[in-house]
């Protein structure tokens, strides 16, 4: 799986040098809190895999991860550490994918297959800024 992502990355870079990276940020639909049954979780996972496979086949998926709900925050000059959760679960970032695409419109198209809209999930799309080397 990992290797194939990197291969795809190389392939997609060869495909079009002008492509940009976008981050799809998944908000809400917190599996830890929804009390889904084992079967429902497996069904969800099947949908995520199907989506992931589709993006891989198109050579646009560059990586991504899911995030657990628990977290810490370090803030202020005094580096105060505080324990999460910091937002309500419907606002919680649950993961992200980075994809290569030419435009926001393309990424919106890709995001159509996000599996968790029915659980009130949201996809936020942000362009990754490239730094000149």
């Amino acid at each position: 799986m990992r290797t194939s992502i990197y291969e795809n990355q190389k392939r997609s870079q060869l495909k079009n040098k002008d492509m940009k990276d976008f981050m799809m940020i998944f908000i809400g639909a917190n599996y830890e809190e929804l009390g889904l049954s084992p079967q429902q979780l497996q069904d969800r996972m099947g949908k995520w895999w199907a989506w992931g496979n589709k993006m891989e086949e198109q050579g646009i998926l560059k990586g991504g991860n899911a995030l657990l709900a628990q977290g810490k925050r370090v803030s202020g000059l005094k580096r105060v550490v505080s324990d999460g959760p910091f937002v309500e679960s419907k606002e919680l970032v649950g993961g992200y994918y980075i994809v290569s695409a030419n435009s926001f419109e393309e990424v919106i198209e890709i995001a159509q297959d996000f599996p968790d809209y029915d659980l009130d999930g949201t996809v936020e799309i942000r362009e990754v800024m490239k730094f000149d080397r």
């Binding site: 799986m1 599996y31 830890e32 889904l36 084992p38 979780l41 497996q42 969800r44 996972m45 995520w48 895999w49 992931g52 990586g63 991504g64 991860n65 899911a66 995030l67 657990l68 649950g94 993961g95």
Partner: peptide, 10 residues
């Protein structure tokens, strides 16, 4: 199971 569902995504 929740962990698996998230972790196996990638």
């Amino acid at each position: 199971f929740v962990k698996a569902t998230l972790q196996w995504r990638s």
